[in-house]
């Protein structure tokens, strides 16, 4: 289980999310906006009669949101609250045996904050991210 990762895209970039933190993957049809909330909070949605706080992955990285809002969300529990992280596409769930190694180059601030390391998978490099840091949003919001 520790080596299982969910591979999804955020802003077109494939990233690996540790499967241990992922509860499920759902499609979000309708959102209730949350006026005055930080820009990366897309709104609230109900999934199986529970309310999720929906976080836009792109805005959380400090990037511009895509013109069409993605509908696919990765559901996870953080500190007793349920979140849905909007991602572009879910590619696969993969078992990657090798441990992640440090990211060798400098990333843009948004990415650098959520990046944990690089994973090698079949000759390809995958960025491993910490979704909890993603949920907390861009730093200037936290400050």
């Amino acid at each position: 289980m520790e080596k299982l990762y969910l591979v999804a895209t955020i802003a077109g970039q494939p990233v690996a999310i540790p499967a241990a933190v992922v509860d499920s993957v759902v499609d979000i049809a309708r959102l209730s906006p949350v006026p005055l909330a930080a820009p990366h909070i897309a709104g609230l949605a109900a999934v199986r009669s529970r309310v999720l706080t929906i976080v836009c992955g792109e805005r959380a990285l400090g990037l511009k949101a895509s013109a069409r809002r993605p509908t696919r969300a990765v559901v996870m529990d953080v500190d007793g609250h349920r979140y849905g992280l909007l991602v572009g596409a879910i590619e696969d769930a993969r078992i990657i045996e090798d441990d992640p190694h440090p990211v060798p180059m400098r990333l843009a601030a948004g990415w650098a904050r959520v990046a944990v390391g690089l994973l090698d998978f079949e000759g390809e490099s995958l960025l491993l991210i910490d979704p909890v840091r993603l949920i907390s949003g861009p730093l200037e919001i936290a400050a």
Binding site: V34, A37, A38, I41, L44, V51, T53, D79, R82, Y83
Partner: peptide
């Protein structure tokens, strides 16, 4: 509500 929503200071809870 989740902390991110709580941070707005204008909501006390959520319901379905």
């Amino acid at each position: 509500v989740s902390p991110a929503v709580m941070a707005t200071g204008v909501y006390a809870g959520e319901t379905l």
